[in-house]
Amino acid sequence: MDPTQPIVELVDVTRVYRQGSVDVHALRGITLQLLPGEFTALCGPSGSGKTTALNLVGALDRATSGTVRLEGRDLGTLTRRQLSILRRDRIGFVFQAYNLLPVLTAYENAEIVMAVQGVEPARRRARVMELLERVGLKGLEDRRPTELSGGQQQRVAIARAIAAGPAVVLADEPTANVDSETAENLLGLMEELNVKHGVTFLFSTHDPRVMARAKRLVKLVDGRVASDERR
């Protein structure tokens, strides 16, 4: 991976939603580049466009205008199937509400993306066991989400997000549903994954703790980039 080539690139991107008879401008022409290994937080007040930007980068939504590229591929030109494969292979997701599958164990949730990719079971097992140990869940592999705390569930979600070796992990308000101590632990974990293993993170957040730890802070206001600060 060329460290000077952006993993994520948004060029003059707009996103307009239609709500009834009203057009809602969620993004109004933002331009942004994310380099490999960055630990970036998108911050801003509610309605500023953080989640919309994350959804566009995550190939979950399409821009109204402008270009969104992931590893140089223009997402606007890809079919739904290609976007689906791209999400599976190159993007990791950590959601605010954890979004684990309730009928699967921690281990099974963590391995699901690799299972969808068709990775052979032995390799899956080795990788997932290593990751669960790394996120501090060794011994809890067989527990279902309802048997885990919020912090533990989010750790499973992080393990799931990085299991398949994505180009970037997108985390939408990852600390919003956990207490302060758990939030600190989760941030420490993600920071460690970023520093030691080079995982690229892009957060959307309005949590000051996340903002404080981010190496780059991009502030969105009314769908525009108000500031972009590297630390």
Binding site: S84, I85, R87, F95, L101, V113, V116, R160
Partner: peptide, 16 residues
Amino acid sequence: IREFGILKALGVGPLE
């Protein structure tokens, strides 16, 4: 419906 959304977000295809 939410779970199907999660599966789709994770890259599970329509056929799956």
